[in-house]
Amino acid sequence: MSSKKSGLSSIGRKVLMALTGFFLMFFLLQHLTINLMSVFSPDLFNEVSHFFGTNFLIQYMLQPVLIFSVVFHFAWGLYLEYQNTQAREVKYAKYKGSANASWMSRNMLISGLAVLAFLALHFYDFWIPEINTKYFHGDMSGMLHDGEGMRYHIELVEKFAHQPMRVALYVGAFIMLSLHLLHGFQSAFQSVGFNNTKYTPIIKMLGNLFAILVPLGFLFIAIYHYNVHPH
């Protein structure tokens, strides 16, 4: 028997979704770890943010991989969703999806698009001003304009204190992220072929913990900064 085809198969396509998903989940964990520092030590948060914001390897090696992963994961997900709709031309008059699969697994497009919409707001809030300061104004110092201390913690606090609408949007987005991860975490393992009776229950449990605790951590930080600073 000889090999019939060398192109990217439907399994290759789902493996690519899984690999970019793994990288994005790793990034979420790293992002949360740094953000949590803002609650416990503004100075440490400033220093670590400055390091991550100016380190050559992180800025020019990891950041491009991250941007690629985000764009690829969304674009590829939409493409696969389009292909999947083409695979059933006539729809069912009655389709009981809830009888055999979770809402999360059936609606990754909805939760994914909600996270995408959130990313637009998040980039507007943080990433675009950061890139503007560093690369368009050439200010790599990480200092405030008046030179009194570093800017990162204050910038973070400013976004949430006195901003109930923004906090609400962030909270909503973290809930959607949680729903996305509740399916995505364990699904990524299945896609790369990892499924066995001994470890799959552990992976599912870890996936549920990750999907709840990581968004909860982000949610806590947003609410903390909203509440802790006087209104």
Binding site: M1, K4, K5, S10, L80, A87, S105, Q186
Partner: peptide, 23 residues
């Protein structure tokens, strides 16, 4: 070759992609 050939044929037939819903 078995998995490659059978998956290639499956793709050629126009089935959709698996998203691990478990249904």
């Amino acid at each position: 070759d078995r998995a490659q050939n059978m998956v290639a044929q499956m793709d050629e037939e126009g089935f959709g992609n698996c998203t691990n819903t478990g249904a």
